[in-house]
Design a protein around this nucleic acid. Structure first.
Length: 259
DNA sequence: ATGGCAAATTGAATTTGA
């Protein structure tokens, strides 16, 4: 199975890029975040024509929203709410015997202090809640993908020292992400193939005048696998060139293969 | 941190992203 996760930053605006991605890489499962559309206006026909006959969508007006698209049948679809908000950040679905979790973790705003910034408080609470929930699950084969909005390793950001107090790379976030990863002993399926000593990013700011030249990126998008699935992992790739597509999302697709 | 874009909604200005 080939799975791709992509924060697409408006699915309607980038349908042509989805077609290009699908044509080039033929994923079996495509997990999108920030679809920015209500379910009624989700382009399900166009995506079905690309081969994704099976779709699970949790969208809302204007922002957020996740969608899991599959060539293979999906069952047990669940949209789960966190932090008492119905804000469309998680879809769970069973595909070919694997539970696929598609997440869009809150960005967390600017100020890395939960006392001063309710968005950061929300992000930290979200991490605590998902960690506690997964800790109560059994080890059924599962993948956890999405825009987790945290770059955990020093090599996941362009400058570890300069981002230590920037939301997405602060020690408290990295610590809580590690706890989440520990909840089911999730394996980082991307770093299994692209070693942790290599710089690796999946997001570059729109604000850079030349994202490629300055290369001030962060690895915010992830694919995790339960230990039972690790022997089936065969490869991973971050589609960096997608940041240069037009019109580009600020995130690029992240792909993992398993047998 | 730096530098200041992009998308959606609403109707030129605001919210959100990270």
């Amino acid at each position: 199975m080939r799975i791709i996760t992509w924060n697409i930053n408006s699915v309607r605006l980038r349908l042509d890029l989805v077609a290009e991605l699908v044509s080039a890489l033929r994923p079996d499962v495509l997990c999108l975040q920030e679809i920015k559309v209500v379910n009624e206006l989700f382009p399900s026909v166009a995506l079905a024509e690309l081969g994704f006959e099976h779709q699970a969508v949790a969208g809302m007006k204007g922002y957020n929203g996740v969608a899991t698209l599959s060539r293979l049948p999906m069952s047990n679809i669940e949209v789960r709410n966190w932090c008492d908000k119905e804000d469309c950040r998680h879809i769970q679905a069973e595909i070919d015997g694997i539970t696929v979790h598609n997440f869009y973790v809150p960005a967390g705003g600017d100020i890395p202090d939960p006392e001063q910034n309710v968005k950061f408080a929300h992000k930290l609470r979200f991490l605590d809640e998902v960690t506690a929930w997964f800790g109560g699950q059994t080890d059924h084969p599962a993948l956890l993908v999405g825009d987790l909005n945290i770059a955990p390793l020093e090599t996941d950001v362009w400058s570890h020292k300069q981002l230590l107090d920037v939301v997405s790379h602060t020690p408290i976030e990295v610590e809580k992400m590690a706890a989440w990863q520990g909840s089911l002993n999730w394996v980082d399926a991307v770093r299994k193939f692209i070693p942790p000593d290599l710089k690796l990013y999946s997001w570059w700011s729109y604000r850079a005048s030349d994202w490629d030249a300055s290369d001030r990126g962060r690895r915010l998008d992830h694919v995790w696998a339960t230990p039972s699935l690790e022997p089936r992992l065969t490869g991973a790739m971050v589609i960096r060139e997608a940041r240069g597509w037009a019109p580009a999302s600020d995130h690029v697709p992240v792909m993992v293969d398993l047998v």
